[in-house]
Amino acid sequence: MTDDLTDAAEHFALTLTQYGLQRMTARVMAALLFTQQDTMTAGEIGAQLGVSSGAMSGALKNLTELGMIERVPAPGSRREHFRFRDGAWATLMSKQNMALTLMTGAADEGIKVAGPDTLAGRRLADMRDFYAYMLSEMPALIERWRDRGARPQDS
């Protein structure tokens, strides 16, 4: 990877950590996102990041479970190869539906405790209504995005 790409990947990883992603997970994700190779082994990622492949095992597992990366066969190689998944962002947002559901439920519980006609209850109702709206709209939004990817876009 060129120095410019390496710098961009590290900056991207730093941005992700500012929004709560674990540092190593963010760095591994950025390495796979910015690579010019189709796939990378854990050893290649580790060499690029200056860490052992063992230090990355949790990050690789986490990113695989999130649907952001995938293991792929590499004929002639005995090592596992990883790549950034096509459609990874839509997959990630689809999984966010669980977070939206949890936030909606948490707001409902808060309203029960605070009471619907209190200041806190009204704030919580606004929160619940927002997350419920997002939850209802997200599937159609993701579907429109996926449909959009199937045809050429205007530049």
Rank of each mutant, 00 (worst) to 15 (best):
Y19I: 11
Y19F: 14
L21C: 05
Q22Y: 08
Q22A: 14
R23D: 09
R27K: 15
A30N: 01
A31D: 02
L33I: 07
T35V: 04
T35M: 01
Q36K: 05
Q36I: 07
D38A: 13
M40N: 04
M40L: 15
T41G: 06
A42F: 02
A42S: 14
G43Y: 03
G43H: 06
S52H: 03
S53E: 01
M56T: 00
G58Y: 02
A59W: 02
L60K: 02
L63Q: 01
R71Y: 08
P73D: 14
P73K: 09
P75V: 09
G76H: 06
S77F: 04
R78F: 05
R79W: 09
H81L: 10
R85Y: 03
G87W: 11
A88F: 05
A88D: 02
A88Y: 09
A90E: 11
A90N: 05
L92I: 13
K95S: 14
Q96C: 14
N97A: 14
L100A: 10
L102M: 14
M103Q: 13
T104W: 07
T104D: 08
E109D: 04
G110P: 04
V113S: 07
A114N: 08
D117I: 05
T118E: 05
L119H: 11
G121K: 03
R122T: 14
D126R: 14
A132T: 13
A132K: 10
A132C: 04
L135R: 09
S136V: 11
E137P: 00
L141F: 11
I142L: 15
W145M: 11
R148M: 10
R148A: 12
G149D: 07
G149K: 13
A150R: 12
R151C: 04
